[in-house]
Design a protein around this nucleic acid. Sequence first.
DNA 1: TTGTAAGCGTTATCAT
DNA 2: ATGATAACGCTTACAA
Lengths: 328, 328
Amino acid sequence: MKDVAKLAGVSISTVSRVINNTIPVEEETRRKVEEAIRKVNFKPNLLARGLRSKSGHMIGLVVPEILHQTFTYWIKYAEESVAAKGMNLILGNTQNDPDLEERFIDSLIQRHIDGIIFSRVSDKSHVLHILEKTDIPFVVLDRALGVEDVPTVVLDNYKAGFIAGEYLSQLGHRKVVCITGPLDIGLSRERLQGFRDGLKENEIDLPEEWIIEGDFGYQSGIDAAQQLFSHRELPDAIWAHSDLTAIGVMNQFSRNGYKVPEDVSIMGMDNISMAEMKYPTLTTIDQPYREMIEKAIDMIIRQRKREPLEKMRVVLEPSLIVRESTGE
Amino acid sequence: MKDVAKLAGVSISTVSRVINNTIPVEEETRRKVEEAIRKVNFKPNLLARGLRSKSGHMIGLVVPEILHQTFTYWIKYAEESVAAKGMNLILGNTQNDPDLEERFIDSLIQRHIDGIIFSRVSDKSHVLHILEKTDIPFVVLDRALGVEDVPTVVLDNYKAGFIAGEYLSQLGHRKVVCITGPLDIGLSRERLQGFRDGLKENEIDLPEEWIIEGDFGYQSGIDAAQQLFSHRELPDAIWAHSDLTAIGVMNQFSRNGYKVPEDVSIMGMDNISMAEMKYPTLTTIDQPYREMIEKAIDMIIRQRKREPLEKMRVVLEPSLIVRESTGE
DNA sequence: TTGTAAGCGTTATCAT
DNA sequence: ATGATAACGCTTACAA
């Protein structure tokens, strides 16, 4: 920058002003400075800039597991919209390990990051308390916490369940199974309740013994299917709280000679790409991933500008994706 | 840091020395300083540190597409081992767009990043030239470039093809199809050549008309299958250069009433998790993702320390994963 | 409109 | 072993 100033015959503050076009600069000098910048191939040092202006132009994204496809959607869209705003994304995988999580958050704090997005932070995680002591904005994505006064972006999980219940019962199914996520997670309970209410619209009951608790994973679909085979009676429709689980169920039914959707309708949740790469393709419920992450980033930026948030808790809408794995 | 110094009754340089334990410090003062650090809950500012020491303790990872699972493996393992070294990972998705790519690299340069890993950089990408003008270490991962003097970590793609060819021909298959990746990519050509040579071990020929060019994607598997159906004769084994493509083929064969592996053996490449989540599960070839990325990070760190690299080009070994989609 | 200079929070060099 | 101080590269009052 000194070089640029020297070459252009101006002071470094003028150079700075040209770069950030803060206050007006004579057209002539601006031209000279810009040429000098090009000549010495000048690149501002973002560390120095960040040090001075207390903003590293970075957003941190915390996910519990990179390999689950739902998280890769968030990673992708987060990177995309962060980049579009001229910032960079620092990614951290916590594997649900509070220690790793704390270490990562700590490094973000030390980097004076502009904001942090947590996707599916654990309920018992105490990093939020740490963060509240700093002035770093953060948003919790996809998993509502018990506490209400934290900026949050979530899917309407009750609605998702309702849509699934309504759809399956409208199809004429009477014996319906729900394979949930871990029931100590609020979102699983909300989906389940919505599902119940959706079924009820068509006078269908969901008895306790047809609720199976899973963990969103593939294996838990296999296990659930095995459990069902040992029942005296098979269901005619199944909704799983995750596509992965639904696919596990579907494969295990195929493996045992059942046909989907002729023998049983199967429906998932999340609309991961794998849902389309099946035969039959999987009916599911889509989450507006991009919209959710953009809303979250927006909330971060608002907080940084000290603008008030319109809402502390933004709730977005799921939508039904009908494919081949469900039928009458 | 000033506060810490004041509280401990020492100078800030002593505080710095305690933190980095550079040169010896009296046991007594160290204790006092450490206590003061705890008391004021002091966190070093990484931007300032980076500015001074010209190292932001960050590694950049450039991928062309986050949603492809092979890349998510690299992202995951990169984050993991970078974090283990006390650094952070900045992730950039270029979507094969040279403009985006250049913008991202530029921001990394301005951040004085410690090193950059490119996974599957485009051959025509000119960012490497830009980087060569800086002193930022970089490594090309997974796609060898024409140029030889660039630090590279690759899979032995010829070997991967050879393994596939040898395995399928040993199974007794005679009519074998290969669905390649884009043939203007070196790695596809190497895999194809290896496959040819592997088949030849058992006197099997791979005629030109049984080589179909794909693009590693799911749809290209569907398309290839359709193309095969229009042949007068179906193959008895197929190897695709990507699991996604193999799965596309498999689904399309199922959809048309064929049984895998009874009617046709299908084999993929990459060992993505979806390969296990099929019925039948997919035989494939594994890449040592974690080892590859760790090697790459290692090369970055070596370059930063100005240690010479043992090898400019590290080649790692693929391995056969036999599952259910192949048989005699 | 432009320049001077202080300061951001560190590390590193030099004395002491 | 410790302290004072310059320097890293930038932004921003304040002055001119």
